[in-house]
Simulated scan of single mutants.
Amino acid sequence: MRVYTLFTPSHKGLYEDYFLKTLPDEFELHATELFEQECPTGSFYHEGWDKICYRKVELFVAACEESMGEHFFYCDVDVQFFGNVVDLLVREIGDFDIACQDDVTAYCSGVFVCKASHTTLAMFKAMKRNYNREDQTTLNEHLHMCQHKKLSPAFFTYGRVAARPWSGERFRVPENVLLHHANFVIGVENKKQIMDYTREKNFS
């Protein structure tokens, strides 16, 4: 299965030290490095964040076109893996068009598996035309165009512990986590800290 991601200079360390080092061999990697740091801080909703998120929507369109008739996986680089996930992704999406990580109050655009088809391509193209602030809001406004569902808790985010940004507190990592996405975390250094913590607790 193809896996797509993209990153800017601020997130290159996350890409190299977490995402790439844990990515299972079962994936065919398609990574896009953006050399222009359009969001100077690399932090959620800071200046330029909307521009970076629009690049993600452009990638969704390209990934769908390149994978037509097959499944593809997209995930952000603040993701680490704890085992193989392709078989589970295929089982979980089933006959649906797209299955996204459960972001508690929304469908997460930072981790999803998609069946590349004319239906999903139409949705991604509509997202480009009607882009609204960032990729996740835009995705949730267009999911009605296809059959969609949420992925299981094996695809973990801190938001399932507390629906607010992580501020350094300790928490219990659920059993059988295969992927951890460091969203609900503001700032690259904080993302590294929660990823280290989750890895330690997942294998302790």
Rank of each mutant, 00 (worst) to 15 (best):
E58L: 13
Q37R: 08
T32K: 14
C53Q: 15
A31L: 07
E92V: 01
G94M: 04
E70M: 09
F96Y: 15
L89I: 07
D97F: 04
T119P: 00
R91T: 13
M123I: 06
L20V: 02
P24I: 04
Q37L: 12
C64P: 02
D87I: 06
F112P: 00
E38T: 14
A31N: 10
E70C: 06
V57Q: 03
A63V: 02
K21F: 01
M68F: 14
D76P: 04
E36G: 01
Q80Y: 04
V57E: 04
E38I: 15
H118I: 01
T22L: 01
S117A: 07
L23A: 08
Y54V: 08
K56F: 06
S109Y: 12
L59D: 00
L23M: 12
I52S: 09
H46D: 15
N84Q: 15
L59P: 02
C64L: 07
A126G: 05
C108I: 12
F82D: 07
F72P: 02
D102Y: 12
A63I: 03
D76Q: 05
V104A: 12
D50T: 15
C53D: 15
V111D: 02
R91F: 06
T41A: 06
Q80A: 14
G83K: 06
T22D: 03
Q101E: 14
V111Y: 00
A63Y: 00
G48V: 06
A99S: 15
T120Q: 02
D87K: 13
H118N: 14
G48I: 12
V57T: 15
F81D: 01
G83M: 09
E33N: 11
V113P: 03
D50K: 13
D25W: 02
K125A: 03
V57A: 12
S67W: 00
F73H: 03
V57Y: 08
F81V: 02
A116V: 10
V77S: 02
V104N: 08
G83A: 06
G69R: 06
P40E: 12
E58H: 00
L88K: 10
Y74C: 03
Y45T: 13
V85E: 01
G42S: 10
Y45W: 10
D78G: 10
V90C: 08
G69M: 07
Y74L: 05
I93N: 03
F27K: 08
D76N: 12
V85W: 03
E66S: 13
K125P: 04
C100E: 10
V61W: 01
E28V: 03
I98W: 05
Y45S: 12
T120V: 09
V57C: 09
C64M: 04
E38G: 11
C114P: 07
D50H: 14
T105H: 10
V79E: 10
M127Q: 13
E36C: 09
C100M: 14
A106D: 15
V86M: 08
C108L: 05
